[in-house]
Design a protein around this nucleic acid. Structure first.
Lengths: 235, 235
DNA sequence: GCATGTGAATGGATTCACAGCT
DNA sequence: AGCTGTGAATCCATTCACATGC
């Protein structure tokens, strides 16, 4: 249908699919490092506890990358996924909130490679200004948001401030031109059009485990992928 | 159908529903602090950008808590949700990995109230032993896992170690008797039956934003709840 | 022969819309 | 009159199963 280089799908791709692409990319990176040359959807499914039909369907949204009777070329599919996910160029990130969580995120290895660069931490507490994380990220005054965003062409903002300040930080980020935000504050952010928002709510995750413990029958076995993925459903 | 105190549903409740219950609880806590006495599903939906039919359906799994023509009693529904989520008694948590992330989680306010208590941090690096977080959590040798779990009746384990060690930590936690785990390591954990696993993958969340940026049409507006929730789908 | 890519079938989750209660 | 609780309808995601191509 689509040529192999066609990586901009016409249809809307669900968040679930997108997140699985990230999982596939990780699997392929591993296979490549293990010197595997090709892999079939069945093999991928078997080794990483996925579903082969789903892998094929997910990939097929973006073109035809496999060879019938053979499977997928590991390196080529990996590159395709990198392109598809937009990880083929660097995206700059800022983190608002230089408390424990912000600092931990600034040092998180997965945020310093494979397409991402953290330009700065921002905070409103002057005592934190000019501190530097182990990974070399500097803390600036939150007043300098616009300046930092402009100078570094920041595309992604991470909210790591207390719940009360989160909405204001979100709005300021959007005003400064950021159009994708990852929120760690435990609040429902009021969104703005055209700005992607993902939230990670640590408290909700714990409460969900509590619910399980309360109702635990004894045995429960689920899709290993589930726990990673967030849905895209409409209200 | 069910009596108001019936809080153990026969049917299987989806993870999506469970996570929404946490959201409702948060909304009700806010309404209670604002001295609201009753609230209708429409009012809840309007104020917190939810869907009224979904609220009613979610709540109805656990009994009949509303009054037709009136709505829900804020305090009573809040208490019901606390019971339903199993937050009416304390659940003890340990965190494995006293690096940046583990330390940040140990200091996270949402983990020190409303039903949770962090008993300890565990690490394999002796240089970290006996350190104490601001919130008073002490770092022990990971060797002492079983001892700590037994003495504190730990029910929930949080994995905050590097990817390579995550599976071993998970297995050790399960062997020690923990039956609910929250994993922050970017790997697919091989599950054991009867043990609930939730994973938060920071890298996947960022990649998902990257995909959005790559394909951003210009405007996109989604369900504000989406970003918080994780699905429960079968392979 | 074997594995992809894909329509068709299934299975869930959300939303609609209204009967029934206060 | 108003709002809950819920069957029916709709929408979306996953899985099946096979025609197609290497």
């Amino acid at each position: 249908m689509a040529s192999p280089r066609d990586v901009s799908p016409k249809e809307v791709i669900s968040e679930l699919t997108t997140e699985r692409l990230s999982v596939y990319l990780r699997c392929l990176t591993y296979l490549e490092s293990a010197n595997e040359k090709t892999v079939s959807s069945h093999e991928l499914a078997r080794r990483f506890h996925l579903n082969s039909a789903q892998i094929r369907k997910d990939l097929a949204y973006f073109g035809e990358f496999g060879i019938r009777g053979v499977g997928y070329d590991v390196t080529r599919l990996k590159q395709t996924l990198i392109n598809t996910l937009g990880l083929d160029r660097e995206r700059t990130v800022i983190i608002s909130g230089a408390g424990n969580l912000g600092m931990a995120l600034a040092n998180y290895k997965g945020f310093h490679s494979g397409g991402f660069r953290i330009a700065a931490l921002l905070d409103t507490d002057p005592r934190r200004y000019d501190r530097k994380t182990r990974s070399g990220v500097v803390v600036y005054s939150a007043d300098r948001l616009i300046e930092v965003v402009k100078e570094n062409s920041v595309e992604i903002g991470i909210i790591a401030v207390p719940a009360e300040e989160a909405q204001a930080v979100y709005d300021a980020m959007v005003d400064s031109g950021i159009c994708a935000v990852l929120n760690f504050a435990p609040v429902q952010i009021r969104r703005r059009d055209g700005v992607k928002l993902k939230s990670v709510d640590l408290r909700i995750n714990l409460e969900s485990l509590s619910f399980y413990l309360k109702n635990a029958p004894d045995v429960a076995c689920e899709n290993p992928l589930d726990s990673f993925l967030t849905p895209t459903r409409r209200l």
